[in-house]
């Protein structure tokens, strides 16, 4: 039983395959971590699922989402899925929010665009409820605040509230905590875990941070240069990595509880 299954997924710019025939699957309610360094193709993979690739890119292969082949649907059908059944949370909440509208307006707009016939009043109530669910205090008041009146962590909560408002089956989070301070990062990761527990949504977490993924993901794919170098449960990959690249990557991660001699750099990459 899978919620989303990608087979031979390929993203091509000109003559370069930035994602090169990768396979993976997401179980309903499960968490798939996609880890890799810059240029590994992890973000392009998420944009390929959402149908948000730049126009200069071409997509090949298959993405089956709960029985719907996403590579075959029309843009109109995709718009009905995107933001409704599949929601996305990006790295930088400030650039994903419109500074001219209150956060409540933006959450309500996202909600109404997928729920035809919902009144403004009901959408506003849904926005407040979503903000409540991500633990924004005084949601009834803060719903009328503008993005700049929120801290970075609070803005990311707003983005998660927006993603949640339509009760999606899948949330794709691309580096959701990378721009945040470590204490705030921990809160947002806890929130994502709680949301999954409460709503049963599946999560694809895209990150360069192995420690973050180890705390959150059930399953893992490790990407490099557009290919999957290793796939398995998080426990398998962290406790017994098979690919030399994964082994090298795990060796290169600085450990907070331990100061070792020289870190072991990953061979073969750019210096």
């Amino acid at each position: 039983m899978t919620l989303l299954q990608a087979k031979g997924l390929t993203v091509t710019f000109g003559a370069t395959n930035v994602v090169d025939g990768i396979d993976f699957e997401v179980r309903p309610g499960g968490t798939l971590g996609i880890v890799g360094e810059s240029g590994s193709g992890k973000s392009m993979t998420s944009l390929a699922i959402m149908g948000l690739l730049p126009s200069s890119a071409t997509r090949a292969g298959s993405i089956d989402f709960a029985g719907t082949e996403l590579t075959k649907v029309t843009e109109r059908q995709m718009r009905a899925i995107r933001g409704d059944r599949i929601a996305m949370v990006f790295q930088d909440p400030l650039s994903s929010l419109n500074p001219y509208y209150t956060v409540g307006t933006q959450i309500a707009e996202a909600y109404r665009s997928h729920r035809s016939g919902v009144s403004r009043k009901a959408a506003r109530a849904a926005a407040i409820e979503a903000m409540d669910r991500v633990h924004i205090k005084d949601a009834g008041k803060r719903v009328d605040d503008y993005p700049h009146q929120f801290s970075g962590g609070m803005r990311q909560r707003v983005m998660i509230a927006m993603a949640l408002s339509t009760e999606p089956e899948l949330i794709i989070a691309d580096e959701p905590t990378t721009a945040l301070d470590v204490t705030v990062q921990a809160q947002i990761l806890d929130l994502l875990a709680e949301v999954r527990r409460d709503t049963g949504a599946a999560l694809i977490l895209i990150t360069h941070d192995l420690a973050v993924v180890s705390e959150v993901a059930d399953d893992l794919i490790v990407m490099r240069h557009g290919r999957v170098v290793e796939t398995g449960t998080a426990e398998q990959i962290f406790s017994d990595p098979q690919a030399p690249y994964t082994q090298a990557l795990l060796d290169a991660v600085p450990r907070i509880d331990d100061s070792i001699g020289d870190l072991r750099p990953v061979p073969g990459g750019p210096a």
């Binding site: 420690a211 795990l250 450990r255």
Partner: peptide, 19 residues
């Protein structure tokens, strides 16, 4: 601050070094 830092689970880490 220290408590908030994400860590690779120690039991996985130990298993990896053993393996």
């Amino acid at each position: 601050l220290l408590a908030a830092v994400p860590r690779i689970r120690p039991e996985w880490e130990a298993a990896r070094l053993r393996n």
